[in-house]
Amino acid sequence: MLDPQPLQNKTVLITGGAARLGAMSARFLHAAGAHVIIHYRNSAEKAQALQAELQRSRPGSVSLVQGDLLDFPYLSRLVDDALEATGQLDILLNNASNFFPTPVDEVTEQQWDSLFGVNAKAPFFLAKEAASALRKSSGCIINMVDIHAERPHKNHPVYSMAKAANAMMVKSLARELAPQIRVNGVAPGAILWPEGNANAKHQSLPRIPLERAGRPENIARTVLFLATAEYITGQIIAVDGGRSVQQ
Rank of each mutant, 00 (worst) to 15 (best):
V104P: 00
Q246I: 10
G67Y: 02
F225C: 08
F28C: 13
F125M: 13
R77L: 07
N119D: 02
I38K: 06
A85V: 10
Q110C: 01
L93E: 09
I219V: 06
N184A: 02
A164K: 03
A19S: 15
S172E: 11
V79R: 00
G33T: 08
L115W: 03
S43L: 04
A178Q: 07
P157T: 02
A220H: 05
D113H: 12
S244M: 14
V118Y: 00
P59C: 13
S61I: 05
L75S: 07
S172K: 10
F72N: 05
R20E: 05
T108I: 04
V145W: 02
A31I: 12
G139S: 06
P188C: 13
I37D: 08
P101Q: 01
A149N: 07
A220G: 04
Q180H: 11
I91V: 11
I237A: 01
Q111D: 04
G234I: 11
V12H: 02
A52L: 14
Q8W: 12
P73C: 00
Y74E: 05
A165R: 02
M168P: 04
Q55R: 06
R27T: 00
I191T: 07
R56G: 02
P188N: 09
L2P: 15
Q110P: 00
G214C: 06
L205A: 10
I232K: 01
S43K: 02
P216W: 10
A238V: 06
A31D: 04
I208K: 11
G234V: 12
L69T: 08
L69G: 04
I142W: 09
E129R: 15
E176N: 05
P157H: 05
R56M: 07
E176C: 05
A131H: 07
S172Y: 10
A49F: 08
H39K: 02
S61T: 03
E106L: 13
Q111L: 00
E109D: 15
T108S: 15
G196T: 00
E211Y: 09
D81I: 09
A174Q: 13
R77G: 01
I91W: 11
F116I: 03
L89F: 12
K171I: 01
H202L: 15
M169P: 08
A213N: 04
S204Q: 14
S63Q: 12
R27S: 05
V145Q: 04
N166F: 02
L89W: 06
A49M: 09
T228L: 08
A165L: 11
G33D: 04
W193P: 15
P6C: 11
I91Y: 04
I208Y: 10
S25P: 10
I208P: 06
D3Q: 15
P157D: 03
V158R: 03
H30K: 08
G22E: 12
P209E: 03
W193T: 14
F99P: 05
G33W: 08
S114W: 09
D3F: 13
F28Q: 15
A19M: 14
A174D: 12
M1C: 12
A19Q: 15
Q51S: 03
E109W: 15
S25C: 14
R58E: 11
D3R: 13
N143C: 15
P73E: 01
I191K: 00
G214Y: 07
S97F: 06
D113K: 12
V170R: 02
A187D: 13
E150A: 14
I236Q: 00
Q235S: 13
S25K: 14
K136E: 15
N98D: 07
L115G: 04
E53R: 00
S114N: 11
A220L: 12
Q180K: 12
Q51K: 11
F125W: 13
A34N: 09
